[in-house]
């Protein structure tokens, strides 16, 4: 079976640093993920997530900062609330909220990033492929 495709929106203060640190340590990771660095998790548009799912990407991960540790006066709180609501919509339609991974506060570090990515790959492998037309 084909490996799932993952798109990662990583806050440049947290998730992106974790991804970078994983690279610096040369931790071996599955290759089918792409990282888009974001200024903050709150910049992640839900439309972009839906666009990605429609474009044949199996899973989206949004990596942001700790609760209370946002550079932008808790902007990540807003992001969490909004993305959790999107998970609800994904559940309603049967796409499944597990395709949208929200990780706030982890993935700061290389090994955490590795763990999150590998787990997410494993999880997505178990899901049936997503029909972009549903």
């Amino acid at each position: 079976m084909n490996q799932p495709r993952i798109l990662i929106f990583a806050c440049k203060w947290c998730g992106f640093i974790g991804a970078d640190a994983a690279g610096k340590k040369r931790i071996s990771l599955p290759s089918r993920f792409r990282v888009i660095p974001m200024e903050c998790a709150s910049l992640v548009e839900t439309d972009a997530i839906l666009r990605a799912l429609a474009g044949g990407i199996d899973g989206i991960a949004v990596l942001g900062c700790h609760i209370g540790g946002c550079r932008y006066n808790n902007a990540n709180h807003t992001a969490i609330k909004r993305l959790e609501l999107l998970q609800d919509l994904l559940d309603t339609t049967g796409i499944g909220s597990s395709r949208l991974l929200l990780s706030f506060g982890t993935a700061h570090e290389d090994y955490q990033f590795e763990e999150i990515i590998k787990n997410f790959f494993d999880e997505l492998t178990l899901l049936p492929p997503l029909d972009p037309w549903l």
Binding site: T46, D47, L50, R51, L53, A54, L85, L86, L89, T93, I95, P132, W133, L134
Partner: peptide, 16 residues
């Protein structure tokens, strides 16, 4: 038909 995930879900989520 319109792309499901984008057309319908973007519309639905904008009104969430």
């Amino acid at each position: 038909p319109a792309e499901t995930i984008t057309f319908h879900l973007i519309r639905a989520f904008h009104l969430s």
